[in-house]
Nucleic acid binder design. Structure first.
Lengths: 340, 340
DNA sequence: TAAACTATGTGAAACGTTTCGATAAGGATG
DNA sequence: CATCCTTATCGAAACGTTTCACATAGTTTA
């Protein structure tokens, strides 16, 4: 039985509306003396505004819903999401927005379930790396729900903020080529990911553009996991002419490659160069640090949050933005090892 | 302008209450035919219940507020929190609870600010690794707010779920002693952390209990960071008789030690054994693999969430629980190197 | 001095639910 | 036939706010 405005009003023998004005006084002016008295009483009585009631009448909640990617069970274990989520939290705190986590609870029919997310409890929706299958964003526009997408790739519907995959992949391939590599493989992410698709297709395109040698299993899709990286490496090393360099679609995959390479006695970067993507904050000790393409996740997350808040406030759709990637050279890449 | 119960009622020429009963029918029976008709209309009109309004009257929100530890800026970058948060999310989803993230927005006076967290929007509060300074949990009891604590150590007020630090530390020290180590140092966490305090005091006690040699800087407090681990190692190695083994209060610290040891050319585990605490998952990769004391974070998180939900439902305070730690032996510990 | 402000305050509607207590009609019971 | 259950439905209160329209009373303006 928490204190309400009515309780304060009764205590002071004034009306509820006066109390409301005194505490959150916007348009109305309340004499200083009374206002102080009200405030004092509010504190004394442990008054806490009921935000449900407030939101019900104002229509605003100052809360944004975050929809994580639909992966397997342990979504938040992903280094990418860890980084993204941390930045989202930071930015939301700055903008004084609360965060409601919307997990895709028991939705087999993931597609239509967007309806379930739309709720009077949130002002807008932030999708983090949504999967390609999740089409029904038009539905959101129809329902008048502001939303932004973080890391969704160029062909995603709606205002999205991501890295320039094209430029990033180019950075990686050019870095490898500058080191003399020509036989380069790509271990990519799942084809439900916008980023994975973009990175793979850019890679494929660059191979043609630079006239690099083609070989079996050169460019593959798979889950964004360390295990996938390990498995792919094993396959690639079975080839008669294995690649001298591997461009992994994200850091997890790259770490898998690195770990398995060590186990197989393949020295990195002497015999094999490995480059990742994301720079999601892996720390190395005792193994070569991972050369990778840095995606400005903190900036992207902040951008996605800020734009969403703007969207909500102004009701006008924000403009997309792709930020450039940067190359972070560590020790996992080196001059190409050329068989004599 | 979303559809409301009133809209449906008007459409069908029936009363609002009938619609409500038909859709979420509890006590009242509605004839099957009418019920179907109502449901159909609801779907057709894109009806979505307004949860604010519902909660306002029922007093339940099915949402629990999560309060992360007050660390520096990037709270969610911590491997511990990543693990904990992931498990919290999983369990909450199972129990169909939504999660509202309550960040400690601009509170200089962190102590009293618990009030700000108490909100009609949540049914209960889950504190993750609260700091020792945050005293005012009595206030919560006073305000009748159900809450549980995850990883708060034995002397924390309120129902808490954590690892058995005492037993865990014992595991670590005994493991090292079994390998012949006697000169053992402890690099601990900040003294704002219940866990850090417990681990340090247990360590100190064990040193006495087993009559291990004492030396300067043997047991220290510091932030839970890799940098702290690095710095401490450097100091310890300046000693005339450096320790042969280091027990780090968490994995971050241990990784710092490992990394710096590698740089300094101190071979692990040949010259130095290192053991961590948490086993919070791989954000660091490298060699040798870190021997550590595993804290069952997923289970603890699930427990904390479940107990909170119970607490909310039954209004009776759940019982504390400490789960045992387990030893995970990898390659960073080995037989003691004894100076000839 | 009448009209028009200003300052201060009140009352009540509205937000969208849930749920309690009617009510009316019909059927069964005595 | 009067009474008492059911059954099907409704109206209205309540949850705690915000905010608009109105009501005083005192003060300025013409």
């Amino acid at each position: 039985m928490p204190t309400t405005l009515k309780d304060i009003a009764r205590e002071l023998n004034i009306s509820v509306s006066t109390v409301s004005y005194a505490l959150h006084g916007g348009t109305r002016k309340i004499p200083d003396q009374l206002r102080e008295q009200v405030r004092e009483t509010a504190v004394r009585m442990n008054y806490r505004p009921n935000r449900l009631a407030r939101s019900l009448v104002t229509g605003r909640t100052n809360t944004i819903g975050v929809v994580p990617p639909v992966l397997d069970d342990d979504v938040f274990l992903s280094p990418y999401l860890r980084m993204a989520w941390n930045s989202i939290v930071n930015e939301a705190e700055k903008l004084r927005q609360d965060l409601l986590l919307l997990t895709a609870s028991d939705r087999t029919r993931a597609a239509d379930s967007i309806d379930d997310l739309v709720d009077s409890r949130i002002d807008g929706l932030l999708f983090v790396a949504p999967s390609v299958e999740a089409k029904p964003f038009e539905r959101l526009t129809e329902l008048q729900v502001p939303y932004t997408l973080m890391s969704a790739g160029g062909n995603a519907p709606g205002p999205h903020f991501g890295v320039d995959n094209n430029q990033g992949v180019r950075l990686a391939v050019q870095h490898l080529m500058a080191l003399g590599h020509r036989r380069i493989a790509h271990i990519g992410g799942p084809d439900s990911s916008y980023d994975a698709i973009m990175r793979k297709s850019t890679f494929d395109q660059l191979v043609r553009e630079y006239d690099l040698p083609l070989f079996d299993g050169q460019s593959q899709h798979g889950p964004w996991t360390r295990e996938s990286g390990e498995a792919r490496l094993v396959e690639l090393m079975k080839l008669a002419h294995p690649p001298t360099a591997i461009f992994a679609g994200n850091d997890d995959l790259a770490i898998g490659v690195l770990g398995r390479a060590f186990e197989m006695g393949i020295r990195v970067p002497d015999k094999l160069s490995v480059i990742g993507f994301d720079d999601a904050g892996f720390l190395a000790y005792g193994l070569p640090g991972l050369t990778t393409v840095r995606q400005p996740l903190p900036e992207l997350a902040a951008l996605a949050v800020r734009s969403l808040v703007d969207f909500i406030a102004t009701q006008s759709v924000p403009a997309d933005l792709e930020l450039p990637a940067t190359l972070v050279v560590r020790e996992s890449t080196g001059p190409a090892y050329l068989t004599p």
